[in-house]
Every structure is written in structure tokens, then in C-alpha cells.
Amino acid sequence: MTAANQRERLERVIEALARAACQDYGHRVPVSQDQEEDDLLELEVGVNFLLEDLQRVSRQNQESLAEIERKNREIADRASLALRELATPIIGVWQGVLALPVIGAVDTERGADMMEALLSRVVSEQATHVVIDITGVSVLDTRTADHFIRMAKAVRLLGATCFLTGISPAIAQTLAQLNVDTSSVRTVKRLSEALREVFRELNVAPVHSAPDPR
């Protein structure tokens, strides 16, 4: 074996190790078939076995990581789905009467979900009256209030009477200043007042025992 040849082979080993240092474990030290057995050969083969091991372990790690990420995503998806369902509590308080007490933060996505869920309940139960109470909404700015007014208008368009309760006088004033038309929406200060009005329209006295509200 010439010195040049020896140097070349050493360089190839160093190259393979350098690549492995950069996490490229796919590279191998080239070993020719008719290479006679010498110390350098042991080194070359040894390094290749090492690289093989490294590659295998690295692949296993990546797969485990991917699996963990996948499980995490699934959990997150399921959790947010459950949260979204919890977040749209539509209560059937009476036959044909639905109440939606909104509590907490309402972002665009939750708002849209609520509207879809409510409208589809109105149709499936053929509701006559709906009361949307927004007293518990954590940040009731004009944009959010506007969304709920639109929700009430949509319910009315379907054909049910809709009350919107929990709008403070301040918000009501701001909405008026912004020329938001609330004439087709019945805004009432308190949920209890709205319900009393609903039962009056249904000719039902809430005190007496009543038919099964389903």
C-alpha cells in the first residue's frame, strides 16, 4: 500500500466521520472488494458499522418523535372539539323555546360555531322563541355585540321570535351611534324578563304545572 493510497483511504474515513458529525449518517466509507486485510481496513469497516448503527437509531428517534407529535395533534384536536361543543350550550327551556346563555370569550370562530348550532337547532326543533343572553360575555365590544345582533336577526329570518338580553345601555348607545339597525331585534335588559314575555306570548303561566317540555 502506497503512502498516497493510505492517505486517500484515511481521508475517506475522515470524510465519513465529518458527515456524520453533520448528521448525515447515510454516507459510508467505500471499501473495495479486493482490499487486502490490513489495520486500515478494520478501521474502515468499523466506522461503517458505527454509521449503520447511528443511522438506525436516528431513524428510530425520528419515527418516535413523529408518533409523539401525531398523538399530540390528535389530543389537541379532540380537546378543542370538545371545548367547542361545550362552548355552545343551547338549552331547550320549553317546547319550542330555546335559550343560549353565552359565557366567556367569543372569538370569530366560536361566534360562527354558535350561530350555526343555534340556527340548525331552531330548524330541527321548529322553535317559536329564542332568547340569547350575552350578560356573561367577557369582552362585549361593539364588534361582538354586532355579531349577536346579526345572530338574532338570522333567527328572526328563519321565523322564530328572538330576544337579545344583556346589552348594557352603554353598548346600546354605541350601536345606535354606529347606525346598527336593531329594530327587528327585541332587546331586553334581563333574561328573566325575556322569558316572562315568551311565556306570555305562549299563553302559559309558568307557575302552574306544565306539559312536558321535551
Binding site: E116, S120, V122, A154
Partner: peptide
């Protein structure tokens, strides 16, 4: 319902 949503 979808039509009502779009209208408002």
C-alpha cells in the same frame, strides 16, 4: 339557515 346567515 345558511341563506339566513349569508343575508345578515
Amino acid at each position: 339557515p345558511e341563506v339566513a346567515t349569508t343575508l345578515v
